[in-house]
Design a protein around this nucleic acid. Structure first.
Lengths: 186, 186, 186, 186
DNA sequence: ACTCGCGGGACATCCCGTTTAT
DNA sequence: ATAAACGGGATGTCCCGCGAGT
């Protein structure tokens, strides 16, 4: 009939957003249903695996989205170095714009569930790997050999992820800026 | 007068352990009471602030404990460089020994609550700062000037924290090892 | 006009079985659909009356089947007395063969719904009456006058039904055996 | 403070009543809480075993109450025979007074749960045995030897239980009356 | 310092029945 | 006749926090 988004996507959108905001355990299915404005009865039709499936798919969604953003920024940059700086600046801007509420879209859920749900843990890992891959390809495009590129990419992501944790706790983008600065010295 | 640990500490020990394992929201007060083997009725006597106070104090406790460990490792090392490597190795060993269940004792709770509880967020920040301070002092002891030492310390902690996130998701210490490797190139 | 698809019967078979096992309220329509291996969408085509209609028809089905069995046993017996004993033995064997899970195919549903659904109550009553009728006819065939035969038949069924209740609760066929013994004294 | 019944008893009273009326599965815990007029939050304090524990204890309660009633009637009767007749008449009166809604206080729940909950099954069995015991003692008091008394008692209860099932389905006390009549012929 | 019980709301899950479109 | 999706309410369970009574 209409051009409205189908319920399944609405659920996932809402879930991804809320899991990023509040984390996995603290987000109620009711909240997700309300925010999605989709019919409650359809939740378990689309996600028979319940909250766990919703969590895993929400992580896939958020992971894919950020991968696209990272790729776009890296490709637009004149060098891998500059690209990394631009990515960090983008994350930093995102943090500030949301009052230090939104950092990594999946880290909270990943940490909460890594011990409890192999399914979600795997989804988180896939997302992290896709981001590393994006950095790796950009390093390679700059002439770095594959092995070094992979190592450097993982290191870059690690330091960014950690800085996001510290920045949220500090209520300041300072840790993120320091990471940008130190990474530029390599 | 007996040699038993007082209830208050038992609560905090149990809380620190469970918050690290399962996260803040997923941990019930009842679970904490059970594990603590302390009398249920006295929880709100010792912690009138409820779960939030318990969370903040548990983070203080865990933060202080890890600060001591980090300091000890750094002081025993021949150089700041070697000390950083030793700290990472210790974290890596801890991860493996617990089947990738226990990473940073406070990161999960910090991320979950940073948007919801200023009290806990502040406790988390204090812990992070104390660890940075430990690194900073070691760098200074090696002759690095105060400003550079502070920056480098923050960067080191960021990359370790991030690698712990990635390592738990990956079920592998590889990200942590890469951080150790890359940090040694500085 | 064509040969009816097996779907309808499959639903009824599954329903009869599950209602006997778990009872009416505890059995979900989804379970019935799953076990029937019939297309989910056609349940309400065949049974527009919903669960209630399904319950009533399942009772009719189960009631008719047991009536046939009882008749066959009674006819094969040399006397009404012997027939009653044989029927009880058959029920007893059924109980034991299923670990005291399957007693009367309709009693549970009958009790659960007698206050709530006149439709199902009527179906249950019809089934009980058909079994009484089977006993009555056998008594008459042995020369008992119609009125006495009816009374005796009802009494026989009552004591069997009650013994099935007690036997399931006891996890033993003892109550059933005692009924057989006492009935043989008449 | 007040002379009000404590919550625990209120829960059990409500549960016993509702399980008899509607059965186990069809009775919601919410209904029980509402009818009990006890605080909802205390339910799992008093019954940590949840619905199953509530079911088992409700059966114990109802079983004990009916045992007392049966004993009283049997003791007041001039003979065991007369006592049995009086018990049946009392049950019959109870059925009619409640529009054939209330038969045996535990049979429905017993049948529903015998396959699913050993705990409740055991409680039901205990109740049945206590009623048999009441009959047995009365038969013995009339001079019947222990073994015969036990057999007869079980038989009497079986036929009454079965007649209650049939009577509820029929919406008539006729089956019960026939049982009374036939039992008097022994 | 501790216990028992209150208080009511939220949790994830699954329910039965219906609608739309084939 | 069947499928996909809707619709919203009920399920049993457990939550966190607070009294009153030692």
């Amino acid at each position: 009939m209409s051009t409205e988004k189908p319920s399944r996507e609405r659920f996932l959108d809402a879930a991804a957003e809320l899991f990023q905001h509040r984390g996995y355990a603290a987000t109620g299915l009711n909240e997700i249903v309300e925010r999605s404005e989709a019919p409650k009865g359809s939740l378990y039709f689309h996600f028979p695996g319940g909250k766990e499936q919703l969590g895993a798919e929400a992580l896939n969604l958020a992971g894919g989205r950020l991968a696209v953003v990272i790729r776009r920024i890296l490709e637009a940059a004149p060098s891998a170095q500059a690209g990394v700086q631009a990515v960090i600046e983008a994350m930093s801007a995102g943090l500030q714009a949301t009052d230090y509420q939104l950092g990594c879209p999946i880290a909270t859920t990943a940490l909460e569930t890594s011990t409890q749900s192999p399914v979600i843990r795997a989804a988180a890992n896939t997302a992290f790997e896709s981001w590393i891959e994006a950095f790796r390809e950009r390093f390679e495009a700059d002439g770095v050999d594959t092995l070094s590129a992979e190592r450097r990419a993982s290191f870059v992501l690690s330091s960014i992820e950690g800085a996001l944790v510290l920045s949220r706790a500090a209520g300041s983008t300072h840790p993120l800026e320091l990471v940008a600065e130190q990474l530029s010295l390599l």
